Computed example of a mutant assay.
Amino acid sequence: MGTRPVGGAVRRTRAARGLGLALGYGLDRWLGDPRRGHPVAAYGRAAAALERRTYADSVAAGAGHVGLLVGSAWLGATVVDRAVRRSPVALTAWTALVTWTVLGGRSLEREASAVARHLERDDLAAAREQVSHIVSRDPAALDAAGVTRAAIESLAENTSDAVVAPLVWGAVAGAPGMVAHRAINTLDAMIGYRNERYERYGKVAARLDDVVNWLPARLGATLAAGRSAAARRAVREDSAAHPSPNGGRIEAAFAGSLGIRLGGANAYGGKVEDRGVLGDGRPAQPRDMARAVRLARRVQRGTLAVALAAVGSLAALDRVRTDPAPGPRHHG
């Protein structure tokens, strides 16, 4: 009997976290990213300020930079998480707030849809400017097809990084897991580049980002592919040519599901990188953007369902582990 209170507390914690994930997802769908004072933007500014003190052209310096920033973010979130854990209402609110903060699905869709509207009006200059908000490649030389491809590839990869992965880590490790993932992902976006400055300093950030997104990317690719044989083939045969072990899978799944062709050569800071051809369909066209947005929403909804099911399964497992087995029955 002594184990029941512990088991009940654990199950209440998991229930609160599951509800918080669902509410936070709903807030992202309703509001998108906060317009001002976004915590992730503040974290990025702090990381940039620290980089001016920690930068050196070495892997060790980059590892220290990442360890300090990710460790402090995780520790801060863990302290708060433990403080609110005794109150299911407080834990639900805290988890919902963190979930809303780290998710970027609605805002990403807005950016992609804005690119499509500019292209529909034949305003290529505006489309190039808009797509620069969500890609790091050079947009100046892109034609309409190139802008479309860039936007869909970014939509696919960031659906995995900014929606699927946070929800997965939220289901596994609660708010601290989501905060740590977002910290790693932000650092990868800042320093995880293969160029003269970050080749060594950013290596740990890039590799760590690959690790924490490995499983979410495969879940996202599975959800995006659905029952499409073309999508499954693209993931299986084409994704290996992509330089990212995670981005290639989700982009290939989007290409196959939409019946289009993604990938190819991209220019980054004057350097050209061949990302392989993903899918065997026709080139992407502006009208495909709306279909890509709908596919991204399907992946997001599917991920939420998987995350909530995982939380429920963990709660059920906790019940089995902590509830005592019934004693022997006596007949008389």
Rank of each mutant, 00 (worst) to 15 (best):
G259W: 01
R149A: 12
T78M: 05
D161G: 02
P5I: 10
R110F: 00
R287M: 05
R11G: 07
A141W: 04
D238T: 06
T95S: 14
R29F: 13
V98S: 08
R294V: 08
N195L: 14
V211G: 00
R232N: 03
G312M: 06
S244I: 11
A240E: 15
E199F: 08
V131D: 07
V212R: 01
S154Q: 09
S154C: 07
L314I: 01
G8R: 03
G327I: 03
R233L: 14
T101P: 04
S87Y: 04
T3G: 14
G263V: 05
S239E: 06
R110P: 00
R197E: 05
W94M: 04
G37T: 03
Y43C: 01
W214E: 07
W214F: 14
A296F: 07
E153A: 04
V40Q: 06
E196L: 10
S160V: 10
R45N: 06
A60W: 14
V163S: 04
W214V: 03
A145Q: 15
E251M: 15
A42M: 08
Q130R: 14
T78Q: 09
G26C: 12
A305E: 02
Y43A: 15
H331A: 13
D138N: 12
A145K: 07
D122V: 01
A229R: 11
A49L: 10
A116H: 09
G276I: 01
A221T: 06
R297I: 02
D210V: 08
L314Q: 05
A325N: 02
G2Y: 00
L68I: 15
T101L: 08
